[in-house]
Design a protein around this nucleic acid. Structure first.
Lengths: 316, 316
DNA sequence: CTGTTAGCGCGTTCAT
DNA sequence: ATGAACGCGCTAACAG
């Protein structure tokens, strides 16, 4: 109890929150006592009276967590510190309900979702008073989905040098994959719109034997183009192709997503897709600041297109 | 207030915590009301009275977060759920003080540290009543450090086919690196103990141009063996060697750490070191259960040696 | 034996 | 600038 500053709890509260007008003299006295005692307001006390904690939960899909995501987490953490929120990272577990429960348990002010939460989950959270970020927009349909676009872009790059059979290389992993399906849809949509056969989908384990088996089952003499879930999958497909004696990019062209350092260090250098996270961060930052003012309304710039860059390597 | 079950708060508390003996009949009534109202005890209230929250914070160094670490986090999360703790992941920021403050803010029951916290930080946390895991043992000296051992093992593998000049390939990254120094020490120690020249250290950026420059500065016709901080660095060194026209493993032998999927999918396949996390988990689990009983004492099995396996690829 | 009352812990807010 | 009351759960003491 910093009330040993010779004042009441109420006064302390006022000083620390800049509420009621307190004479400079007492103000200083309180501040001094606070720093002497290493006093920090109890989050529990605050949460109790507010009915909500100072926590921002970042929910991350249970796929491999790479540099990209980590950079985003860092940025969000920095942003959140500005708003006096403490950041909590939560990896989605296999059981969605449990994940939601874990998030709810914090009674967070805000939840940043990277594709884990379903509509019902979001509703449930917002009903409990949390702000779910990024806010869903009315125009967030499948076709406007960034991952859908990724699928379309990959097809185009794979077909750059001429027609070939297209396949989607999905991640085979015990963890769930929230992004793959939309990318595959994007591929299928583009193919259909251009009168091409619907691309098939194969699951690629991240080891040579498995990848080899998967590719062998799919390959049949005509040139094949594999759009992979990410760079790791692409490397697996390349390894399989090498083992099967396929020429790259002649028989087999491959493309990844993420522009990982590894993909650019191997030979042949991987063609991949790099997403600029700037706009995402801008949107999150905007949603975050709207927490303070409670302005509610969406800030004016609904940047729809996420800038994607094709990093052309030697595999397409 | 679930007191609408027709009983007092005290009774609810008793029922939910299995304290005083409550007749089955009332018990059921309370339980029923609780589930109807979706009642969950407020963590804030509990924290307030306990003086400490139900939180377990995992502090993770600000290096690249890979599969290994993620698996560990998953395991700990599962373990923690057993003990009714909610898990919070916190990435260490550039400023250690800020990191500590962020952890303290939660008033956690326990903190699992992956090498971020200094001795002072640990003390500070334990002073505030948190249990820091893994508990430090008296014999946790540098020479017993797992990373020190890693350094020694790598040297031996690199020298397997005969003498060569040794270099440590450090990570060049804006993020801090808690493990590298001990590995380098292990290398130097082993070299010195065997009458070899002290290995040098070079910083390898994760792109071709930078890695090439670094390697070129170090290479001087005699065979060189590079023990790398991790597989990504090893891939960078390999890329540089390829670009410089060095033969592998003739002129240049390279070894990584982590046994990532990528390292095993490239050609030449990477020689790497895989650490079995089982013992670490066992230790953490033990420390965790000791939270309940407050047994305090270290459980009897101080497994000192972490089992490391050399995955021999084509780069040594 | 059963369940209640009282009071604590802490920060916030309203009325004084 | 303060006292009182509140929000919520826990526990010691106590009355039915």
């Amino acid at each position: 109890m910093a009330r040993r500053a010779g004042v009441s709890r109420a006064t302390v509260s006022h000083v620390l929150n800049g509420r009621g007008r307190i004479p400079e003299e007492t103000r200083q006295r309180v501040l001094a006592a606070a720093s002497e005692l290493q006093y920090t307001p109890s989050p529990a006390g605050r949460a109790l009276v507010r009915g909500r904690s100072d926590v921002l939960v970042i929910v991350i899909p249970h796929t491999t967590f790479g540099r990209n995501l980590q950079d985003l987490v860092d940025d969000i953490t920095a942003q959140a510190d500005t708003h006096d929120l403490s950041v909590v990272v939560r990896f989605a577990g296999p059981d969605p309900e449990e994940t939601l429960a874990a998030v709810q348990h914090f009674r967070p002010v805000a939840v940043v979702d990277f594709g884990v939460l379903g509509a019902a989950d979001r509703d449930s959270l917002e009903a409990s008073g949390a702000v779910v970020i990024p806010k869903l927009r009315p125009d967030d349909t499948l076709e406007n989905n960034a991952n859908f676009t990724i699928g379309e872009l990959m097809v185009q790059e794979l077909l750059r040098k001429g027609p070939r059979r297209l396949v989607f290389g999905a991640l085979l992993d015990e963890r769930s994959d929230p992004f793959g399906p939309a990318r595959y849809e994007g591929m299928k949509h583009w193919a259909q719109a251009h009168g091409l056969p619907i691309p098939r989908r194969m699951e690629i384990p991240l080891h040579l034997a498995g990848a080899r088996a998967a590719l062998q089952a799919e390959f049949a003499d005509e040139p094949i183009g594999v759009a992979c879930y990410n760079d790791a999958v692409a490397l697996a497909v390349l390894a399989a192709g090498r083992d099967l004696g396929l020429s790259v990019p002649g028989h087999l062209s491959v493309m990844g997503v993420d522009a990982t350092a590894e993909g650019q260090l191997v030979s042949p250098r991987l063609t991949t897709l790099k997403a600029d996270n700037g706009p995402v961060m801008a949107r999150i930052a905007a949603d975050l600041t709207s927490l303070d003012g409670r302005t509610g309304a969406h800030p004016g710039t609904p940047e729809r297109t996420r800038p994607f860059t094709v990093i052309r390597g030697e595999t397409t």
